[in-house]
Design a protein around this nucleic acid. Structure first.
Lengths: 202, 202
DNA sequence: AGCGGATTTTAATTCGTGTTAAAAAGGGTC
DNA sequence: GACCCTTTTTAACACGAATTAAAATCCGCT
């Protein structure tokens, strides 16, 4: 018998609830520190229920990582693509910075989970995930190279290092930002200001 | 009886060997992922030997964190203080950036351990450590405020946010840097260039 | 109503790791 | 060389958490 439509939809919703819960708990407790029972409870089920959807903790975290980069990359690319045709390469870079920050601080539990646990995950999981990670890095590489090709950024910089410094500044916001004094958008604006124009007076 | 001099020195050396091992293992595996037996083995003893020097894993990690900030702050301040009297506030900021990067990438296992595990440690440990952390933050706050007071940096920036963005860019180097293509000093140079002068052409 | 697969639960297992206890070894001092 | 304090080891314990097994429940369908 073909599985009924409503049936499979409900199952997918549960799976998603589980993934959402996993993203939150992994982000808050780290990989080893996250207990399957915390995740299950947050998703409204008992621990072994997780195993109906995922064969192990490793595969669960792997899926969280996968969704994390995919969404981040999608959102950032979308924001960049939404710019007017007349936008400069530096404007596109600014849009990417803003998109990434918003993803980390407001929209993406998966994004912040990814950032915080990537370095803690078992080696084989990390190895399998590296491809996705690199693909997202490629988006940034292209943005920077376009800007340099157009003469919009200085020619004396190592763009490989610069890319990681930028992503570092943005990723680290996951460690300290708490809503309150500043909004995520304000943080993004400070970041574009510092990165594109520097601290020094002009 | 008074403990002989040679005796206490040997004991202190062992304690230090243990701390060094702990810093390395915590940095590589994270807090929950680091096993006491890994640490003990690296220090050349069996697991329960650790308990002669530290009463628990928590207190061990706490000491690693403490040493981490203390050394980082000491080194950065020393480098800043070593500058000529004529150095500008921006020069002092550059020196701090360079010092911090070198500490993360070359000198300080404790520094990189601190950076990577601070967010994973039990809440009470983190709470006790927050004072030290803030003290180091104060060094950077002062550097930035001096620069602004002297009119050397733009007046439209939120220095609290900027401080965290800078430290983020630098701290994140612990996640991606591997000696090879670039030296730590080169990374530091790229960082000062981007942070102080920005990516855009002038 | 009742069949049958999908989903969830209860109960049990297994294993790793932090910690403790007790014994042994080391080494300086008289 | 015997004594005593320090340090390290061997052995055992405790406990939490991932995983498995088996039973129970749910729910659409006939």
């Amino acid at each position: 018998m073909v599985r009924s439509e409503a049936r499979t939809r409900k199952s997918e919703e549960t799976r998603e609830r589980l993934l959402d819960a996993a993203a939150k708990v992994f982000r808050d407790k780290g990989y080893a520190g996250a207990r399957l029972c915390d995740i299950a409870e947050r998703a409204g089920m008992h621990t072994p229920g997780v195993y109906y959807y995922f064969p192990s903790k490793e595969e669960l975290v792997e899926e969280v990582l996968r969704v994390g980069v995919a969404r981040t990359r999608g959102y950032v690319q979308e924001r960049v693509a939404g710019l007017a045709e007349s936008a400069s390469a530096l404007d596109r870079l600014r849009a990417a910075i803003e998109g990434h920050v918003l993803m980390v601080l407001e929209i993406g539990d998966y994004t912040s989970a990814n950032i915080r646990i990537f370095g803690q995950v078992p080696d084989d999981v990390r190895a399998r995930h590296l491809g996705d990670q690199r693909a997202y890095g490629g988006v940034w590489r292209a943005l920077l190279e376009d800007a340099r090709a157009g003469g919009e950024i200085r020619s004396d910089l190592d763009l490989g290092v610069i890319r990681m410094l930028i992503l570092g500044a943005l990723n680290w916001t996951a460690e300290w930002y708490r809503p309150g004094p500043q909004t995520a958008t304000e943080v993004a604006r400070e970041a574009t200001a510092m990165i594109c124009d520097g601290l020094g007076v002009r």
